[in-house]
């Protein structure tokens, strides 16, 4: 999964998509995952980091992850592969 190339995201979690003019706000966890996606980390890698860092197991994390990425997809923030 890859984030769209031209979008700008600030440290505060404010994202601007220059193609559509839409802006979005991420909470800190959303921002963290988004940045991992930007770095082109795999689901396995992200799951490992998140389960180590936070009190969540892999199954539950993946559920939230797919929920989150389907929302990113819906707002056209991911590249079509």
């Amino acid at each position: 999964m890859k984030t769209k190339g031209n979008i700008a995201i600030s440290e505060s979690g404010f994202l601007f998509d220059p193609t559509t003019g839409e802006s979005f706000t991420f909470n800190p966890v959303g921002l963290e995952i988004f940045n991992y996606l930007k770095e082109e980390k795999s689901l396995g890698e992200i799951t490992e980091i998140m389960t180590e860092k936070y009190d969540i197991d892999a199954n539950n994390f993946e559920r939230y992850y797919y929920d989150f990425t389907s929302m990113l997809n819906q707002y056209h923030l991911l590249e079509n592969e």
């Binding site: 031209n6 220059p18 193609t19 559509t20 003019g21 839409e22």
Partner: peptide, 21 residues
């Protein structure tokens, strides 16, 4: 190019942003 961010009841842009399209 611009997208209206805030539209009045007359359909006029009250806020807008330049876009890369």
């Amino acid at each position: 190019a611009m997208r209206k961010q805030y539209i009045t009841d007359k359909g006029k842009a009250w806020g807008g942003i330049t876009i890369d399209d």
